[in-house]
Simulated assay, not measured.
Amino acid sequence: MSARSKARKRALDMLYAADLRGVPAIEVLDQEAVRARTQPEREASWAYGREIVLGVIERSGEIDETIASHARGWTLERMPATDRAILRIAVWEILFNDEVPDSVAIAEAVESATVLSTDDSAGFINGVLGAVAASR
């Protein structure tokens, strides 16, 4: 698994934890920063994971609006928490990180959904992200 893939997983864990606990993502990020300082072997995934979470926090309104406008028939509240976190990461990468090709952001998101979410999530996430990428 590449360092960026590990970082996406780390960001997913943080966003998911914040969502489930009902706390601001910055609080979970701060806790993870303390953990990162004591585990230097995980440093490669920390920098980009932190960048993702900060980007999602900074652009949360735009990201959630984009997801909602492309997720036909689904509200954010109705989606599984895992899917919300996966979509937020991928939409941030598609819209706000020019270093990541859209196809890579989508493929990584679909892979995460395949492994971590429901049987229908990968197809749903692929459709939403494909529509987001096409509308840029």
Rank of each mutant, 00 (worst) to 15 (best):
G130M: 05
A25L: 03
F124S: 08
N97F: 14
L54A: 03
R21E: 08
G55R: 02
R10M: 09
R42W: 03
A11T: 12
S117E: 05
I63V: 06
S117K: 08
Y16Q: 08
L129D: 05
R78V: 11
W92N: 13
V110F: 02
L116V: 02
G123V: 07
A71K: 09
R8M: 10
E65H: 01
S2I: 07
Q31S: 02
A71E: 01
V115S: 07
A90Q: 09
H70Q: 07
A81Y: 00
E65K: 04
A131D: 13
D83Y: 01
A131I: 00
A105E: 14
I67V: 07
A133C: 08
E51S: 05
S45I: 06
K6G: 12
E32V: 04
R50G: 00
S103A: 10
A33N: 12
E111D: 14
I67M: 04
E58L: 13
A17P: 00
A68C: 02
I125E: 01
V104N: 03
P101D: 14
A133P: 09
R42G: 14
A18D: 07
M1Q: 12
T114S: 12
Q39V: 13
S112T: 07
E43H: 06
E111N: 04
I67Y: 06
R10T: 09
A47T: 11
D102S: 13
A134H: 11
R50Y: 09
L129M: 07
R35G: 00
A71Q: 03
A18W: 02
S112Y: 12
V132C: 05
D98M: 05
V28F: 01
V110H: 03
A81G: 00
T75P: 04
W74V: 13
R4K: 10
N126Y: 04
A3T: 13
E41K: 08
V28D: 00
D64Y: 00
A90T: 06
I57L: 15
R35S: 07
V56K: 09
G61N: 11
L54I: 05
A47G: 11
E93K: 12
A44I: 06
L29H: 03
D19S: 09
T38C: 07
R8P: 03
S112M: 14
A18M: 09
D19M: 08
H70L: 00
T114A: 08
S117G: 06
P101Y: 10
R37L: 13
S45Y: 01
G123L: 06
A3S: 11
E108D: 15
W46Y: 13
A122E: 11
L12W: 15
A81H: 01
E99M: 14
I89A: 06
Y48N: 10
T66M: 05
S60Q: 12
M79S: 07
L129T: 10
R50C: 05
T114E: 13
A3M: 08
V56D: 02
D102T: 11
R4Y: 12
G49M: 07
A33D: 12
T75I: 08
T38R: 10
S112N: 08
D64E: 04
R84E: 00
R42T: 12
E93V: 12
W92F: 15
D19N: 10
D19E: 15
A122M: 06
L95Y: 01
D19V: 02
R21H: 04
L87H: 00
I63R: 01
S135C: 07
V100G: 09
A109P: 05
